[in-house]
Simulated assay, not measured.
Amino acid sequence: MTSAHGGNDPLPPQVVEALRCSMCGNPIGLAERTLRCENGHSFDLARQGYVNLLHARIPAGTADTAPMVAARADFLASGAYLALADELARVCAEADGLVIDAGAGTGYYSAHVLSSAPSATGLALDVSAVALRRAARAHPRLGAAVWNLWEPWPVGDEVASVLLNVFAPRNGPEFHRVLRPGGLLAVASPAPDHLRELGDLVLTVDDRKEERLDATLGEYFARTGRTAVRSTVELTPDRIRQAVEMGPAGHHLDRDGRRERLEALSETQKVTVSFSVSTYRRL
């Protein structure tokens, strides 16, 4: 994996070319550290290198918070989910243009994919500006933009060769629109036995999740493969806390005594990490 860069460089040209003004939908250009369209709408790059294209509030509890992002960064750096990152890099190795990571978080998986695809450039989309501060520095060929994935994306039609979606919202119509014909969609989701040893400290995974995934995407994509990524890892109490705090349960730490039980952990535990990686081709 490529080491992080400084995060103060302008967005990669391929990313700027793919982006659209979120106010009027026109193409935008980058002058110094400002994105601007022909109608005069402008968006300044943050000091960390990402750009915020949102112009509306998002519902509370939607974006990852600073503590959740910090927990995720530390946990992923431990290598506990490296097997998943490697599998995503393998299935996306053909990427030769723009890779869009929808729900990129800190850019951990995007960076692995780009490191295995030297001719590709990445665009990280996420609703959490806190997460994208890290994503913008995760890889020198990765640009980052804050956006709500449930809204029409500020991205041109058929601009991406690969679309990556890891534990994130799945907007089938937008996936289809931004992928070029025959483009690859790679979706990673937790399996029903993921983190099962942690019980109700984490949110349960629906046994029919894969079935629902195929139904959601079936109108726009044909599934081409599905791989299980499963292993057992030893997690220290701190790593267990991070695993809980970085996921959906991180929004609900004060329910059902979850926070108190996490703080009481004192022993290393063997835990199942289990994922499903599904690949699809754009119809």
Score class of each variant (00 low, 15 high):
residue 118 P to K: 00
residue 119 S to D: 15
residue 119 S to K: 15
residue 119 S to H: 15
residue 120 A to Q: 08
residue 120 A to E: 04
residue 120 A to P: 07
residue 120 A to S: 10
residue 120 A to M: 07
residue 121 T to M: 01
residue 121 T to H: 14
residue 121 T to S: 13
residue 122 G to A: 04
residue 122 G to T: 05
residue 122 G to S: 07
residue 123 L to A: 08
residue 123 L to H: 07
residue 123 L to M: 13
residue 123 L to I: 14
residue 123 L to G: 08
residue 123 L to E: 12
residue 123 L to F: 09
residue 124 A to P: 11
residue 124 A to S: 13
residue 124 A to W: 04
residue 124 A to I: 03
residue 124 A to Y: 05
residue 124 A to E: 07
residue 125 L to R: 08
residue 125 L to M: 13
residue 125 L to G: 05
residue 126 D to T: 10
residue 126 D to W: 11
residue 127 V to Q: 06
residue 127 V to R: 07
residue 127 V to C: 14
residue 128 S to A: 05
residue 128 S to E: 08
residue 128 S to W: 06
residue 129 A to S: 15
residue 129 A to V: 09
residue 129 A to N: 13
residue 129 A to P: 14
residue 129 A to R: 15
residue 129 A to F: 07
residue 129 A to M: 12
residue 129 A to I: 12
residue 129 A to Q: 15
residue 130 V to N: 12
residue 130 V to T: 15
residue 130 V to E: 15
residue 130 V to R: 12
residue 131 A to H: 10
residue 131 A to N: 11
residue 131 A to T: 12
residue 131 A to E: 10
residue 131 A to D: 13
residue 132 L to W: 11
residue 132 L to Q: 11
residue 132 L to M: 12
residue 132 L to R: 09
residue 132 L to K: 05
residue 132 L to N: 08
residue 133 R to P: 05
residue 133 R to M: 14
residue 134 R to W: 01
residue 134 R to G: 05
residue 134 R to D: 10
residue 134 R to L: 14
residue 135 A to F: 06
residue 135 A to R: 13
residue 136 A to C: 10
residue 136 A to L: 09
residue 136 A to W: 06
residue 137 R to N: 04
residue 137 R to E: 08
residue 137 R to D: 02
residue 137 R to F: 01
residue 137 R to S: 14
residue 138 A to L: 06
residue 138 A to P: 03
residue 138 A to D: 00
residue 139 H to R: 05
residue 139 H to Y: 04
residue 139 H to S: 01
residue 140 P to Q: 03
residue 140 P to A: 09
residue 141 R to P: 01
residue 141 R to V: 01
residue 141 R to Q: 07
residue 141 R to L: 00
residue 141 R to Y: 05
residue 141 R to S: 00
residue 141 R to H: 08
residue 142 L to V: 04
residue 142 L to W: 00
residue 142 L to P: 05
residue 142 L to E: 02
residue 143 G to Y: 02
residue 143 G to V: 11
residue 144 A to E: 04
residue 144 A to D: 01
residue 144 A to I: 03
residue 144 A to F: 00
residue 145 A to R: 03
residue 145 A to C: 09
residue 145 A to L: 06
residue 145 A to Q: 10
residue 146 V to C: 02
residue 146 V to S: 08
residue 146 V to E: 03
residue 147 W to R: 00
residue 148 N to K: 04
residue 149 L to Y: 05
residue 149 L to N: 02
residue 150 W to A: 14
residue 150 W to T: 10
residue 150 W to E: 13
residue 150 W to D: 14
residue 150 W to P: 00
residue 150 W to R: 12
residue 151 E to D: 14
residue 151 E to P: 03
residue 151 E to A: 15
